[in-house]
Amino acid sequence: LRQRHVACLARSERGLGFSIAGGKGSTPYRAGDAGIFVSRIAEGGAAHRAGTLQVGDRVLSINGVDVTEARHDHAVSLLTAASPTIALLLEREAGGP
């Protein structure tokens, strides 16, 4: 079961505080899956403080732009754009009992 949710992050002077992996033109985060995933969350960064991202979340869109088939460098450029806030649509595998 997959759950979707939106995370809104305000960029700090240190950026957004998370890294992505995967996407076309880069090493897959999961074998056989060209999706883009949250690969790291920086301690004390914007994403960590927001508490809405988890490592392993699939990134579906960035500020309304679909990145499900995107190249890695395109997703990075969307994240590093000048916008002071970033809205992410994420998909998470629902774990637990």
Rank of each mutant, 00 (worst) to 15 (best):
89 L>Q: 13
36 I>W: 05
13 E>P: 12
68 T>D: 03
27 T>I: 10
36 I>E: 05
80 T>S: 15
65 V>E: 13
57 D>V: 00
74 H>F: 14
23 G>A: 00
40 R>T: 14
31 A>H: 11
56 G>Y: 02
29 Y>K: 05
48 H>R: 07
2 R>Q: 05
29 Y>R: 05
90 L>E: 01
14 R>Q: 11
32 G>T: 07
72 H>V: 08
43 E>T: 12
78 L>A: 04
45 G>V: 05
75 A>S: 02
32 G>Y: 07
89 L>F: 09
77 S>C: 10
33 D>P: 03
26 S>G: 14
95 G>F: 13
58 R>Q: 06
62 I>L: 01
4 R>K: 10
32 G>I: 02
78 L>G: 03
65 V>K: 11
81 A>I: 08
71 R>P: 08
92 R>S: 05
48 H>A: 13
72 H>L: 13
74 H>K: 11
43 E>P: 12
13 E>K: 11
13 E>S: 13
73 D>T: 09
53 L>G: 01
97 P>R: 10
97 P>C: 13
36 I>K: 01
79 L>N: 02
37 F>C: 00
35 G>K: 01
25 G>Y: 06
65 V>C: 15
2 R>P: 04
1 L>K: 14
30 R>V: 15
89 L>T: 14
95 G>C: 12
63 N>K: 00
59 V>W: 01
49 R>M: 15
88 L>S: 00
49 R>C: 13
51 G>R: 07
26 S>F: 06
38 V>M: 00
40 R>F: 15
94 A>H: 13
75 A>N: 00
76 V>Q: 12
39 S>P: 02
87 A>R: 15
54 Q>E: 12
63 N>Y: 03
1 L>A: 07
14 R>M: 08
33 D>Y: 08
14 R>E: 14
33 D>Q: 13
54 Q>Y: 06
9 L>F: 15
34 A>D: 15
72 H>R: 10
88 L>H: 01
77 S>I: 06
49 R>P: 06
70 A>Q: 05
81 A>F: 09
8 C>H: 15
23 G>V: 00
45 G>K: 05
58 R>L: 02
21 A>D: 06
15 G>Q: 06
86 I>S: 03
28 P>M: 10
22 G>N: 01
89 L>S: 10
23 G>E: 02
95 G>Y: 13
93 E>G: 09
32 G>H: 12
80 T>G: 14
38 V>I: 13
53 L>A: 04
52 T>W: 08
45 G>R: 05
7 A>L: 09
78 L>T: 03
75 A>L: 00
30 R>K: 15
39 S>D: 14
26 S>E: 10
14 R>L: 09
67 V>N: 00
84 P>Y: 06
65 V>Q: 13
31 A>T: 14
38 V>E: 00
26 S>I: 06
12 S>A: 11
50 A>S: 12
12 S>D: 15
25 G>M: 05
78 L>P: 02
60 L>Y: 00
71 R>G: 11
54 Q>N: 11
63 N>R: 01
86 I>K: 04
10 A>I: 11
39 S>V: 04
39 S>L: 03
18 F>M: 09
68 T>I: 05
77 S>R: 14
4 R>E: 09
95 G>H: 12
26 S>C: 13
73 D>A: 09
96 G>F: 11
82 A>I: 08
30 R>I: 14
62 I>D: 00
46 A>Q: 12
95 G>M: 11
91 E>F: 01
7 A>H: 05
9 L>W: 08
62 I>C: 03
65 V>R: 08
70 A>Y: 08
67 V>S: 00
17 G>Y: 02
17 G>T: 04
18 F>K: 01
60 L>D: 02
49 R>Y: 11
64 G>P: 00
63 N>A: 05
25 G>L: 04
73 D>N: 09
83 S>G: 15
90 L>I: 15
28 P>E: 13
43 E>S: 10
84 P>H: 13
41 I>Y: 02
49 R>V: 14
14 R>T: 13
92 R>M: 00
70 A>I: 07
43 E>N: 09
2 R>K: 13
83 S>Q: 13
61 S>E: 15
74 H>I: 14
45 G>W: 04
68 T>M: 06
9 L>H: 02
45 G>C: 09
79 L>P: 01
91 E>P: 00
80 T>E: 14
70 A>W: 04
82 A>L: 08
18 F>L: 08
40 R>P: 01
78 L>W: 02
87 A>L: 11
73 D>G: 09
54 Q>R: 13
44 G>V: 06
63 N>T: 01
23 G>R: 00
24 K>G: 13
12 S>C: 15
97 P>S: 12
90 L>W: 01
26 S>R: 06
72 H>G: 07
57 D>G: 02
93 E>H: 10
40 R>S: 14
62 I>P: 01
4 R>Q: 10
63 N>V: 04
2 R>V: 10
15 G>P: 08
8 C>F: 14
64 G>Y: 04
20 I>A: 02
18 F>H: 01
52 T>C: 10
3 Q>H: 08
5 H>V: 15
52 T>N: 14
63 N>Q: 07
70 A>H: 05
34 A>F: 14
43 E>V: 11
90 L>C: 10
67 V>P: 00
8 C>D: 08
46 A>C: 11
86 I>Y: 15
21 A>I: 12
61 S>G: 09
92 R>C: 02
83 S>R: 12
48 H>E: 15
34 A>Y: 15
82 A>F: 08
24 K>S: 06
69 E>G: 09
1 L>D: 10
53 L>M: 15
87 A>M: 15
40 R>N: 14
77 S>Q: 13
13 E>H: 12
1 L>I: 14
21 A>F: 05
41 I>E: 00
78 L>V: 06
86 I>T: 11
89 L>V: 15
51 G>M: 07
48 H>Y: 11
86 I>M: 09
18 F>N: 00
81 A>C: 13
83 S>V: 13
50 A>F: 06
9 L>N: 02
30 R>D: 08
84 P>A: 12
40 R>I: 09
37 F>E: 02
91 E>M: 04
28 P>K: 09
25 G>I: 02
93 E>K: 10
39 S>E: 11
55 V>F: 01
13 E>D: 15
67 V>H: 03
48 H>I: 10
39 S>Y: 04
72 H>M: 09
17 G>K: 02
7 A>S: 09
95 G>D: 12
1 L>H: 09
50 A>C: 12
51 G>L: 04
36 I>F: 03
6 V>C: 11
74 H>S: 10
20 I>W: 00
26 S>Q: 09
53 L>T: 02
25 G>Q: 05
23 G>C: 00
9 L>I: 15
55 V>S: 03
77 S>L: 09
61 S>Q: 14
34 A>E: 13
53 L>E: 00
74 H>G: 05
4 R>I: 08
55 V>Y: 00
73 D>I: 05
90 L>K: 02
5 H>K: 09
35 G>N: 05
39 S>M: 05
37 F>G: 00
61 S>L: 07
13 E>W: 05
67 V>K: 01
79 L>W: 04
4 R>W: 04
28 P>L: 06
24 K>V: 10
68 T>F: 04
52 T>R: 07
35 G>E: 00
94 A>C: 14
9 L>Y: 07
12 S>W: 06
30 R>A: 11
56 G>M: 00
38 V>G: 03
31 A>S: 15
24 K>D: 06
18 F>R: 00
16 L>G: 04
69 E>N: 13
22 G>S: 01
58 R>W: 00
75 A>K: 03
52 T>I: 11
31 A>Y: 14
56 G>K: 00
53 L>N: 03
49 R>N: 12
27 T>A: 08
54 Q>P: 01
69 E>A: 12
16 L>M: 12
5 H>A: 06
70 A>G: 09
54 Q>W: 05
10 A>P: 09
51 G>N: 08
10 A>R: 12
1 L>N: 11
52 T>G: 09
93 E>M: 09
84 P>E: 14
85 T>R: 11
71 R>S: 14
60 L>I: 13
5 H>Y: 12
70 A>M: 07
76 V>I: 13
8 C>W: 12
25 G>W: 04
92 R>W: 00
6 V>T: 10
